[in-house]
């Protein structure tokens, strides 16, 4: 049994959409398989040491908080890139997702730097895209699964040509409300606008991340199989959330 080490970036600043729910899900689901999840907060001016963490988590924040951390994150950019090259996994949600791209251009032209871990740019739009979302992902070839969540963002995120989205939008807006895709995936790095929080009602994605983190821990390319859990409540919560996305989608605000 292993200890999985999570580096939680800016938990004091980026926590607006119940990001700690994602951490709770990772912790319990690891524990139920006999693994221990150790979560270390990585705040302002805390150093990032490549190799020290198997999974990094970046949550969402209000515009002001996001701006406060953006500059500090740039200082962590190089070690984070190195950590990812070394096989560490990353989950970034909403504001954190935008910060993993190359940057965010505000509605009035002000810029917020990103760290370019994901090949994308974000530009503020006039109206926020708010509502329930359902997407279909294929993280492992041939295995199509859905992710249900809630989005609330003014940013329009555009992926570089050839970049891999996290999933195809079945209901809701997604990255830009037009292209029909949501999120971005590059190897073990995942960014998404979906909160809710993301992982409780999408338990398979939590397990996928845990498996990637374990692979980093064990230094393998193949991620280990995790013992399946009953997940009845998780499936039921997923179904309700997916039904909401299908019936009421998103709205502009």
């Amino acid at each position: 049994m292993s200890t999985i080490r999570v580096g939680h970036l800016y938990p004091d600043y980026l926590n607006i959409y119940a990001d700690r729910g994602n951490i709770a899900v990772l912790t319990r689901r690891a524990a139920w398989r006999g693994h221990e999840l150790e979560v270390a907060p990585l705040g302002m001016r805390d150093p990032v040491t490549p190799g020290e963490h198997d999974l990094y988590y970046v949550g969402g924040g209000q515009d002001r908080e996001q701006l406060l951390v953006a500059e500090d994150l740039v200082r962590k950019s190089e070690p984070l890139h190195e950590a990812v090259r070394g096989g560490a996994a990353v989950l970034a949600v909403c504001g954190g997702y935008q910060l993993l791209g190359r940057g965010y251009r505000g509605f009035h032209g002000e810029d917020m730097p990103g760290i370019g871990l994901l090949p994308l740019d974000t530009v503020a739009g006039e109206r926020r895209m708010i509502g329930d979302v359902l997407i279909e992902c294929e993280l492992d070839p041939g295995e199509k699964r859905t992710v249900a969540g809630f989005e609330n963002h003014a940013g329009r995120t555009r992926l570089d040509p050839g970049a891999e989205p996290l999933g195809r939008v079945l209901a809701g807006f997604g990255n830009d409300g037009e292209g029909g895709f949501e999120g971005c995936r590059a190897g073990r790095v995942i960014g998404t606008y979906l909160h809710g929080p993301l992982l409780p009602r999408n338990a398979w994605l939590a397990d996928w991340l845990l498996a990637q983190a374990l692979a980093h821990r064990l230094g393998t390319d193949e991620s280990p199989a995790l013992e399946p859990l009953p997940d009845e409540l998780e499936r039921s919560a997923h179904e309700v959330s997916a039904a909401r996305a299908r019936s009421r989608g998103g709205r502009f605000d």
């Binding site: 926590n15 959409y17 119940a18 700690r20 729910g21 709770a24 509502g131 329930d132 809630f150 609330n152 909160h195 809710g196 929080p197 409780p200 009602r201 409540l233 039921s236 919560a237 309700v240 959330s241 909401r244 009421r248």
Partner: peptide, 30 residues
């Protein structure tokens, strides 16, 4: 419509003495 806020509530102090929770409403499973 966004129910994520329940994860930011500190419900934990209620847990030690709680013998039964009935979860209800449209998002009971969540």
């Amino acid at each position: 419509r966004d129910v994520s806020w329940i994860w930011d509530v500190d419900f934990e102090p209620l847990l030690p003495g709680l013998e039964r929770l009935v979860a209800s409403g449209g998002r009971a499973a969540e």
